[in-house]
Design a protein around this nucleic acid. Structure first.
Length: 415
RNA sequence: GUGAGUGUAGCCCAGUGGUCUAAGGCGCCAGGUUGUGGCCCUGGAGAUCGAGGGUUCAAAUCCCUCCACUCACCCCA
């Protein structure tokens, strides 16, 4: 028997209520903040991600689904959302639109990882990007939207973590100070960190090893090395967040796994134990558009994993509205009644009434049992008698009362 | 990629070498007289015991390999 590939999952009908619930909240939030939907392909040229996400990152180094297609093109299934949006911004000349351009997406994300609860090889992200404005008020708005969106889902016990990692002017200064610090504390580091020291110094800051955490606590903080512009940007952002009444934690050890971030980085985390602590995250990427061949254009965005949202909705026992189902069930006895029931179903559907017609030719008892299991409110019963007189029996499943109705009165009764 | 645990019908699970031709519950199907659901009763279908190999007179049960899931690390959404 075939099984779904490792790390993928079927989203079954019983799960769909969560998806619809989340999608509705997404549409609402995007409308409130002025974001328009964009859909980009499920795959892109590999070079797009090498360029944007960064050659040294885990995503590019070992997690991308990359292959050569029959035309010998190097293709990669999207391992994140932002790069495609930036590509589309450039490709369609969106710099000619009023700035910032605000776009949102819901898309599949593919990463070759070891699956775990809340971590899959294909998952779905909702993300949004505001491109073309470097005002810290926009950073605050983006963060506010992320926060309000998650709150609108009835998720609770969330925490907003905030940091600034500077720009290409001041970040090198910080990085070398950080590296110097870690070099001089080399003997206290775990093997992993010793390994990462050269390659990705920022990552040492969020090592889970207790001793490394102690070392990280005393490490130089990026906020101490910000250039005047970045420093001011960060202060302004915090001021705006205060105006917005959002409480946040400045986390000097917050770094993100993609190279393109500058200045503002943030994450929203649920208060849970265990591995999958990030519900969503984002930040500013002021150099990315230029890196992809556009003129220098500041931008900021956020993304969140839908499967992870659902995980937390379930953990917090948030109930979501059920999907609507047909409330009318048609039962029939005998061949003539069966033909008649098909006609009645068509009449009702053409009047906008959702119905289920019993299949096969099972006993009336079985058909009613089925209607009961479906949770139908009304059952229409058709037998020989009813066919002859152009009537049906309408039975209420809640009161168990029933009466004979001429078919021309039926649609109005059920509307 | 590393470490640990688990794997019996659609779902939850009993069973740790010998009437296991695998038990029970949920769900599904059908009956409990003629054209009427939910409760109850009765019956039925549904399992190559994750896959392959080995040990043994005998394997769901012991061993090996693989696969998958869960958890932790890593990384991230």
């Amino acid at each position: 028997m075939h099984k779904a590939p490792r790390g993928t999952l079927d989203i079954l009908p019983e799960e769909q209520a969560y998806w619809r619930y989340i999608k509705q909240k997404i549409i609402h939030a995007c409308q409130l903040y002025g974001y328009e939907r964009i859909d980009t392909p499920a795959f892109e040229d590999t070079s797009l991600f090498n360029r944007s996400v960064g050659e040294g990152t885990d995503i590019v180094e070992k997690e991308m689904y990359t292959f050569e297609d029959k035309g010998k093109n190097k293709i990669t299934l999207t391992p994140e959302g932002t790069a495609s949006i930036c590509r589309a911004y450039l490709e369609h000349g969106f710099h000619n639109l009023p700035q910032p351009v605000k776009l949102y997406y819901i898309t599949s994300i593919f990463r070759y990882e070891r699956p775990q609860a809340g971590r899959y090889r294909q998952h779905h992200q909702f993300g949004y990007e505001a491109i073309g404005d470097d005002d810290p008020a926009l950073d605050a708005e983006v963060i506010d939207m992320a926060w309000q969106f998650l709150k609108s889902l009835n998720l609770d016990h969330l925490s907003l973590q905030l940091n600034s990692i500077g720009c290409k002017k001041c970040r090198p200064l910080y990085l070398s100070a950080l590296k110097d610090y870690y070099m001089s504390n080399n003997q206290n580091l775990c093997p992993d960190c010793k390994n990462r020291l050269e390659r990705n110094t920022l990552r040492l800051l969020d090592c889970k090893n207790p001793q490394c955490q102690q070392t990280a606590n005393a490490a130089p903080k990026s906020s101490q090395y910000l250039c005047p512009q970045c420093d001011d940007h960060f202060k302004q952002l915090q001021r705006y967040l205060t105006i917005l009444d959002l409480s946040f934690v400045v986390n000097h050890r917050l770094v993100r796994g993609l190279d393109y971030y500058t200045k503002t980085v943030f994450e929203i985390q649920p208060e849970t134990e265990g591995a999958q602590s990030t519900l969503g995250g984002g930040g500013r990427y002021d150099d990315l558009i230029a890196e992809l061949g556009g003129k220098p254009t500041p931008a900021i965005g956020f993304a969140t994993g839908i499967e992870r949202i659902i995980l937390n909705l379930k953990k917090q026992n948030v109930s979501v509205p059920p999907l609507p189902k047909p409330q009318v069930f048609i039962a029939h006895i005998g061949n003539e009644a069966r033909d008649f029931s098909i006609k009645i179903a068509a009449i009702l559907r053409r009047n906008g009434i959702a119905v289920i017609v019993a299949g096969g030719s099972r006993s009336l008892k079985a058909q009613l049992r089925q209607a009961n299991n479906f949770g139908s409110h009304h059952v229409i019963i058709i037998g020989e008698q009813e066919v002859k007189t152009d009537t049906v029996i309408l039975r209420s499943m809640t009161t168990a009362q029933q009466r004979t109705i001429p078919i021309n009165e039926l649609p109005a009764l059920l509307q």
